[in-house]
Design a protein around this nucleic acid. Structure first.
Lengths: 268, 268
DNA sequence: CCATAATATGACCAGGTGGTCATATTAGTG
DNA sequence: CACTAATATGACCACCTGGTCATATTATGG
């Protein structure tokens, strides 16, 4: 037993949790501010209040440290997705009855409140019909993303940095673990949507996914770093307005930009 | 006259054009590969085949060099936009007559060929009606973007790098000069579209622009760096397929994702 | 052909990088 | 307490960075 511990002694996970967290926090801060390459190990050890030698005893090199941090991010994402999925399943089980209200995220709950009060006669995005599930699921995914950013802004920044830095060590592999709204996640959703008749099936699945992915990803990027978009400037926005924006965007995705009558010339 | 030349002698613009181009090419290559901060002056001078001292005689420092290069990019963009605008105006002047065929870009011409041959009975995006102008204008803007990337991939990379690098010197100012599809460009277009009845006016202008911007920007990003998107993988794609994708995307933007009958529950 | 002014050069600078390792400190044990 | 094994430390390394400047080279005009 001492042998096993000897092997494990010097590893990071055997440190007191408090120290672990300080190191992680410092690394997350630095990587989120500067991406991989420009992030400074010196800064990290200074912020973490440890010596450089110690850091290199816990992590073989910069790359290992970075991958470790990024994997914490993917874990958080997986957890968030799982939660979101669970609440979706629960929602489906409860059906249309407005009594569903268990331990879900605050923002999603807030949106529910909105939609139930506004669900008298007007039906914008959250209306009756077979497409209800699809578009409100998409909406919930988006809101889950927003909530994730609220909870873990630094980690999301790291994700964005990896997304746009070319020479991050395991870039492809890391991104593959996560790709927020990519085919693996939206694929089944959209496929089901097409099957159930919620969304049109004359558009190739890839194109459907592309547009959803592009819009939602961009929305989250804008939310995460308000500077990017002058158009909708999220970030300075309050929660209610944010929900309005989400609704409008989903509405456009669903109904298109053309005025109602003009969509009549579609090939059916 | 010698006095004036004396002042100007040491400047970059007085170098033989051949040398200028070599330096610019080296700088563009390096900045496109590594962004601003990680780009190496040493690499640039090596690639350009000049000494470091010379470079610093032409450009005060790294920042000045970078701004100089970026301004060449904005110039190229402005030229491309002007060309695109001119061809749009010409197109409008010629009206619906299919004889319009002056000195326009190859790819736009190619798309025209497609649309005119396909314009018998089926009307997908390029159909008759008041919205024709708007959506085909958007399409042409997108194709102009694609053509720009084909012509100047390195410059476009630099643009993307600036877009996602936080600490580029004059970042805000540089981006403001250019922002490919931002409010300044799409704003008037969309406003006109709403006025002419081509697009619905129950959606705030900002939201309309956001969705167009997000989709088109993402499309170009995917096109520029195929790695980003697994969904539609552009970049390996041939021209015809590309045009099909563009058409489909515009179609979805116009008509929405919902099946035709379901858009009936919109509030009119 | 020479003298002088313009230009090109790369050794050099201070400062920063990721990474190493002999040494100091601490913790565990008999 | 003492001895040893585990761990923490920061001076140090080679390398790279943007930037400088005395010196060498070239071009020009007399």
């Amino acid at each position: 037993m001492e042998n096993l511990q000897q092997l494990a002694r010097t590893t990071f996970s055997n440190l007191p949790v408090e120290k672990q967290e300080k190191i992680v926090a410092a690394a997350v801060r630095e990587f989120s501010r500067h991406g991989y390459k420009k992030a400074s190990i010196n800064t990290i050890v200074r912020d973490a209040g440890i010596s450089k030698g110690s850091l290199y005893q816990y992590f073989h090199n910069k790359e290992v440290l970075f991958v470790f941090i990024f994997e914490r991010f993917t874990l958080l994402v997986k957890k968030a997705v799982a939660e979101q999925g669970r609440s979706n399943v629960a929602r489906a089980r409860e059906g249309e009855s407005a009594t569903a209200e268990q331990g879900r995220s605050s923002i999603v709950r807030a949106r529910d409140g909105e939609s139930t009060t506004a669900a008298q006669g007007r039906s914008c995005v959250v209306g009756a019909g077979p497409e209800h599930d699809f578009f409100s699921q998409v909406g919930r995914v988006l809101l889950a993303g927003i909530e994730f950013i609220d909870r873990h802004p630094d980690y999301f920044q790291i994700y964005l940095r990896v997304l746009f830095e070319q020479d991050v060590p395991m870039r492809e592999k890391l991104l593959a673990q996560v790709r927020l709204f990519s085919r693996e996640y939206f694929g089944p959703l959209c496929q089901a949507g097409q099957k159930s008749g919620a969304i049109r099936s004359d558009i190739p699945l890839a194109v459907v996914i592309f547009i959803l992915d592009a819009t939602l990803d961009r929305f989250l990027q804008s939310y995460a770093q308000g500077a990017l978009d002058r158009d909708l400037d999220l970030g300075q926005i309050n929660r209610e307005e944010l929900l309005v924006q989400v609704k409008l965007i989903l509405q456009v995705l669903k109904e298109g930009l053309a005025v109602y009558g003009n969509s009549g010339n579609r090939v059916v």
